[in-house]
Amino acid sequence: MKTLSLIASGAAVLFSTMAFADSHADVDPAVTARQAHMQLYAHNLGILGGMAQGKIDYNPEMAQTAADNFLALANISQATYWPEGTAEGTKAKPEIWDNMDDFMSKADDLAFEAEAMADAAGTDLASLQGAMQGLGGTCSACHREYRIRDN
């Protein structure tokens, strides 16, 4: 009995180190890409949002550049970012793969609001502020259903 459980725990250690090694060696490049893409959203949103919140002075050219970048990003197809089996070890919820159509439609909603932001950002501060909530709402609508929080 004792040896058996020892062997079993040895096997468990072996498996867990294998899993650990695995998770480092083989991060799917699609995972790196989608997370970087999200960071690019946040970066450009930071410029627009910083102005909207009065943390940075409003500058129509800079706002337009950020909004154009954002629109370009939002129009990049997400299709290759979410291969099956890439939830493990990431913050993507497995439910994404049961509801891929809904998930992709949430990405489309974002592109739609990004269009509105690109029309508004260079006009004046009030227009930028008006487009901010709709844009942020599309991020959280997806994060609500499909992203795990783990700290």
Partner: peptide, 23 residues
């Protein structure tokens, strides 16, 4: 206060999960 109003974190990530309803 900004997060509870707009859902934006200070680094312009956004709220997710059950907290979306709270915001």
């Amino acid at each position: 206060a900004i997060y509870l109003d707009s859902g934006f974190t200070p680094d312009f990530d956004t709220v997710g999960g059950e907290m979306v309803n709270v915001v």
